[in-house]
């Protein structure tokens, strides 16, 4: 959580220094909802996330340098610089991506759960998305599919109260989003998304339900994003300063720090040491990203299709143009 917080703060800083371009969505304030749900995942479980995915990538253990390099658009990034902030992934750690279309990952996650069933795996899928995604048609289609086919999946709503600048109250007929599970005779529940232990407990239980009982579920984790929707949004037009200040008092990191110190599992010195380590890690990540090479333009076409054989298929279609003017960016070189 501390790593995510620091990474996001420094990402914001790098963005304002124009070292990161494009669209950039920070998850400051939502760390517990992410970490509490990702931590219980086992070796056979798979994870999907929304576009606000930096924290998810760090929570699965992706190298912070490679994540930062992706934000910088570098070839050493987790997606080779082809995806960017919203499209991180780490296939080795079974994190199958952040997804840039709101709600787009839900049916895909259901398909991954179907594949686990099909192959007789004992794993399950955790699919994270925001409150805004619950109003897309894909939400309904995916939850219904999971229900009728008893798929091993947890749909986790990270409810931060706003889909960009539109509040849940303005956008949803039923504002207690977990209740939508009832429409599919699916288990639904809501937990405090700023309490990492509560999220951890709920996810662990629902994972068991998915793996052992082949029952999908809908988990609503209620939290708040401290920053705007993206770095380009100050986040102040559609919500009050009082509201933001109130939520900042419920800082999930401070809360866990307090819980851990109370329980005697950490002391104040440990926390300071951790923060120092994290600072150094993130600084290293930025250095690595800044120094890394950009992708090669000559490779522009290389990954459009998933196999080298495609080049041969496209060879007869390929052309440099009547005057050779497209030679430089010609596609399907064989």
């Amino acid at each position: 959580m501390v790593l995510i917080r620091r990474f996001e703060e420094r990402t914001e800083e790098q963005y304002t220094r124009a070292r990161i371009g494009g669209y950039c969505h920070l998850a400051i304030g939502e760390e517990a909802a992410t970490v509490g749900a990702v931590d219980p995942l086992g070796d056979h479980d798979y994870l999907f996330a929304s576009y606000r995915d930096h924290g998810t990538a760090l929570a699965v253990g992706s190298d912070p340098g490679a994540v930062m390099a992706e934000l910088f658009g570098k070839a050493a990034g987790v997606a080779g610089g082809y995806g960017g902030s919203m499209h991180l992934l780490d296939v080795e750690r079974r994190f199958l991506g952040g997804w840039g279309i709101v709600g787009g990952q839900l049916p895909i996650a259901a398909g991954a759960a179907l594949a686990l069933d099909y192959t007789g795996s004992d794993g399950a899928v955790l699919c994270q998305f925001g409150d805004g995604a619950t109003n897309t048609g894909a939400f309904h289609e995916a939850l219904n599919l999971a229900a009728v086919w008893n798929l091993p999946i947890i749909f986790q709503i990270t409810n931060n109260l706003y889909g960009m600048g539109t509040s849940v109250a303005m956008a949803s007929g039923e504002t207690e989003l977990w209740k939508r599970a009832a429409a599919y005779e699916m288990h639904g529940e809501r937990v405090d998304g700023n309490d990492v232990l509560a999220v951890h407990e709920a996810t662990t239980r629902l994972l068991t339900m998915a793996r052992r009982d082949r029952r999908p579920s809908l988990l609503e984790t209620c939290t708040y994003r401290w920053r705007g929707h993206s770095v380009a949004d100050a986040g102040k037009v559609y919500r009050s300063a009082d509201e933001i200040a109130e939520w900042r008092t419920r800082d999930p990191i401070a809360r866990f720090e307090h819980q851990a110190i109370e329980a005697g599992t950490l002391d104040v010195g440990d926390v300071s040491e951790l923060r120092r380590e994290v600072d150094a890690t993130v600084t290293e990540a930025i250095k690595f990203a800044a120094a890394a090479a950009t992708p090669t333009v000559a490779n522009l076409y290389d990954n459009v299709y998933g196999d080298p054989g495609t080049a041969a298929q496209f060879a007869r279609m390929d052309t440099a143009g009547p005057f050779g003017e497209r030679r430089e960016t010609r596609g399907w070189r064989t």
């Binding site: 049916p107 179907l114 594949a115």
Partner: peptide, 17 residues
Amino acid sequence: AETAIVGACTGASMMGL
């Protein structure tokens, strides 16, 4: 549910089916 059908194909094929 065509979105779910094609979405499920995407997810399942990503997993090797």
